[in-house]
Simulated assay, not measured.
Amino acid sequence: MTFLIIFSSNLHTPMYYFLSCLSFIDLCHSTVITPKMLVNFVSEKNIISYPECMIQLYFFIIFIISECHMLAVMAYDRYVAICSPLLYNVMMSNKICFWLVSGVGTIAVLGATVHTACMLRVYFCKDNIVNNFFCDLLPLLKIACSSTYINEVVILAFTSFNFFIPTLTIFSSYAVILFSIFRIQSTEGRSKAFGTCSSHIMGVALFFGSAGFMYLQPSSTNSMDEGKVSSVFYTIVMPMLNPLIYSLRNKDVKIALKKMLERRKFS
């Protein structure tokens, strides 16, 4: 999807610019988790060193935070396009798009740095068996033998910010969009717009629902076995479904993909 959007001139718009960024984030997100997970499936001993675990944790946090805020940016872009079409080119100029993506990256790197720095101060002296298929915050804290109070406060604060701010932005944007859709007199136009919004909301609900189930539960009631199931959705399933939900259902993307395949076949 990233290369398709880069090399198709008709897709050089803010909407597809954000879609390419989301596709890149999904690719990196899966790359951090999936290769090591697949190796563990065929290995007799599932071992990861402490430095590798911290590196995996750091980049995992970067990309999951990036995805949260990128989904919010995409919802805002759709809000401007549908509710203020005459001002769209001004409100979503190249400069503003760049600063929005830069802001997403800055928030993600800051959050990952704080979480990883807090994790580095924790001592592990138990069985050192992580009850998950990758190094995540809560499973690591479960095997700590030093105080994790600061870590839990940081997780609650950052998770609340990275969960509620994007969620509020997304659902506020789509609430206004849906209100505008109901004012469309054309039945066909209303159906098309509503179908696009419903698919986006479904993807957002799956991603934030599974992530929120993992990170927003009190530590006393959090089950690692249930957490592993929910983490499968936001680490593996959603990166796989996002191209289908946000891109391949789009007519412009289908046309660009068809042209690129025909060009390669001709060459």
Rank of each mutant, 00 (worst) to 15 (best):
A81I: 03
T2M: 08
I25W: 04
F179D: 08
V130L: 12
F171V: 06
D136G: 15
L11M: 07
T34F: 13
E52H: 14
V32S: 02
L27N: 07
H69I: 01
Y174L: 04
L141K: 03
C97H: 09
R121S: 12
C83L: 00
Y215D: 07
T159L: 03
F208W: 03
E44W: 13
S230P: 00
V232L: 14
L261C: 08
Y50E: 15
L138H: 09
I170A: 02
R263T: 14
L137N: 12
T169K: 00
Y16K: 12
E67R: 11
E226L: 15
I82N: 04
I64S: 09
S8W: 00
G103Q: 01
Y76F: 06
I236P: 06
K254D: 07
P51F: 07
T148A: 01
S43C: 05
F3G: 09
I129Y: 14
L11K: 03
S146R: 04
C145P: 02
C145V: 07
F133M: 10
A157F: 11
N46E: 15
F208E: 02
V130S: 02
Y17H: 10
C68F: 13
T221V: 11
S173N: 00
F164E: 07
L248V: 11
L27V: 12
V232T: 11
S20W: 05
L244S: 14
Y58I: 03
V104I: 09
S219C: 08
V232F: 11
C135I: 07
I255S: 02
K258R: 11
D77Q: 15
V153L: 08
S8H: 08
M54N: 05
A112K: 01
F124E: 05
G195E: 12
S43R: 12
T106N: 04
F161A: 11
M15T: 14
F161K: 00
C53G: 13
G103R: 06
L27T: 10
V154D: 03
S9A: 13
F60V: 00
V237L: 14
I150S: 11
L156T: 07
V130T: 11
F182C: 14
N132Y: 15
M202P: 01
L168I: 02
A144N: 06
H12C: 06
A205S: 13
G203K: 01
N94Q: 08
A75G: 03
